[in-house]
């Protein structure tokens, strides 16, 4: 009887299990346990974890927070659209707006220092994609996600959007500078 027909033994659950199957199931269980262990383990010893910190916010609230930071810490303006470049104090709350189709403002951070980066969207869903380090998170309207970031290398980083957000999606690019 093949798999297309009913089992030849009516009481099939009493049949012995093939030894190779038992070996394999054992290996699968062990491997599954190792993978399960890795995630909490990384929360303890790893340096790349998302915090559980997030807040419900309104776009206006988040916009005002960002504007206050921009007013206080802007060091210069760039591009023909005069996008402010903000150098916030080490360890401070840093706000980054995602909106159709901008990342605003440009940030200037210090290598090896930590900042509390707040991400939220003014309109639709967006994807925060930081390159070339390839860090990707979801950015939602109405939610403020707080990630403590510690840049480990100086240089120019790009942020683009990797959650489809309409016809200007592929033009939504921003920047973070990391200085020594």
């Amino acid at each position: 009887m093949s798999s297309l027909s009913p089992p030849s033994e009516k009481i099939w659950w009493n049949e012995p299990i093939e030894s190779v199957e038992l070996i394999w199931i054992g290996l699968c269980v062990v491997w599954g346990l190792i993978m399960t262990f890795m995630m909490p383990y990384w929360h303890v010893v790893g340096k790349q974890n998302l915090s559980n910190e997030a807040y419900r916010v309104t776009p206006t609230f988040f916009q005002n927070k960002t504007q206050a930071m921009v007013d206080k810490y802007t060091v210069r303006k760039e591009t023909d659209r005069d996008i402010p470049v903000v150098a916030p104090p080490v360890g401070s709350d840093v706000y980054l707006i995602a909106r159709l189709w901008d990342w605003w403002p440009i940030l200037e951070l210090k290598k090896g220092q930590s900042y509390r980066l707040h991400l939220s969207s003014m309109d639709w869903q967006h994807g925060f994609s930081l390159q070339p380090v390839n860090i990707n998170t979801q950015v939602l309207p109405g939610y403020d996600m707080v990630i403590t970031v510690t840049p480990n290398k100086s240089g120019d980083y790009s942020i683009f959007c990797n959650e489809y957000c309409g016809i200007g999606h592929h033009r939504m690019v921003g920047k973070i500078y990391v200085k020594d």
């Binding site: 093949s2 798999s3 297309l4 099939w12 659950w13 199957e21």
Partner: peptide, 13 residues
Amino acid sequence: GVVFGAKPLSEKV
């Protein structure tokens, strides 16, 4: 089953 007439090694697994 069709190509080889195979049945499962054990139904239970």
